[in-house]
């Protein structure tokens, strides 16, 4: 979706402000927000792409006015409400009201280490040959789906060169829509900064994105 989360190339946000000796969390509630989001993935049954879509679907003004973990909590609430795991009434009252919806599994303390270690690999075997190889020139399609996509606006329509071929990976766009993994070849595509930002751009700069094959056409 063409949301405000797609920030590459926007102006006006000011300088980057690094924080010396920054702690992993800045408030106790951030720790709980982080842990709740991770832990709910298992009983919730959504995938990472669905969570990203839930977060980026927040209205733009609200997204920009929210801190990182506020966005996470809002996204988590959206996902749980959509699936009927909790109700609006429960959120307002701060307690469980109805019976829990049966869930396949919850994350137990005993499983935490194993689950984190395993992670969620997205590489998949495929019998389909790759359409492109390293060195090929490709144009990023001009697509504007209202659903989740990982093709940022700043590269759409632009021509780059295939730099790395990563094999087939779960296709985020399909996965976020609940249409299955639909694995597609994944490439790193590199652009000259002048191709993206115009003739005045720094000629020593290049930028790459990772792009699934459905985003690409031969150039």
């Amino acid at each position: 979706m063409n949301g405000v989360h797609d920030m590459g190339g926007m102006h006006g946000f000011g300088p980057v402000v690094p924080e010396p000796d920054e702690p992993p969390f800045h408030a106790p509630w951030e720790k709980r927000a982080f842990a709740l989001t991770l832990a709910m993935g298992m009983p919730g049954g959504w995938n990472l792409d669905m969570s990203r879509f839930a977060r980026e679907s927040m209205p733009p003004a609200e997204y920009l006015a929210s801190s990182y973990y506020e966005i996470w909590i809002a996204g988590l609430q959206t996902l749980m409400l959509q699936r009927g795991l909790i109700s609006q009434e429960e959120i307002e009252q701060g307690h469980a009201r109805g019976a829990a919806k049966p869930v396949a599994r919850i994350l137990s303390a005993a499983d935490v280490e194993k689950v984190l270690y395993r992670g969620g690999p997205t590489a998949r075997d495929t019998d389909t040959p790759a359409k492109f190889s390293a060195g090929d020139r490709v144009r990023m399609k001009n697509i504007n789906p209202p659903t989740h996509t990982r093709l940022p606006r700043y590269v759409r329509g632009h021509v780059g060169t295939i730099d790395l071929v990563h094999g087939a990976h779960v296709f985020a766009d399909s996965h976020a829509r609940g249409e299955g993994e639909n694995p597609q070849w994944l490439y790193t595509v590199r652009f000259d900064a002048r191709e993206l930002w115009g003739a005045d751009a720094d000629p020593t700069v290049s930028v790459s994105v990772d792009a699934w094959e459905p985003y690409l056409e031969p150039a």
């Binding site: 709980r32 982080f34 842990a35 709740l36 991770l38 832990a39 709910m40 009983p43 919730g44 795991l85 909790i86 429960e90 959120i91 701060g94 307690h95 469980a96 829990a100 869930v103 919850i106 994350l107 137990s108 303390a109 499983d111 935490v112 280490e113 984190l116």
Partner: peptide, 16 residues
């Protein structure tokens, strides 16, 4: 809410 409904194990949250 999530603890009352049994969706999360508080010990797992602490460990995360």
């Amino acid at each position: 809410i999530l603890t009352e409904k049994g969706y999360v194990d508080p010990a797992a949250l602490d460990l995360l």
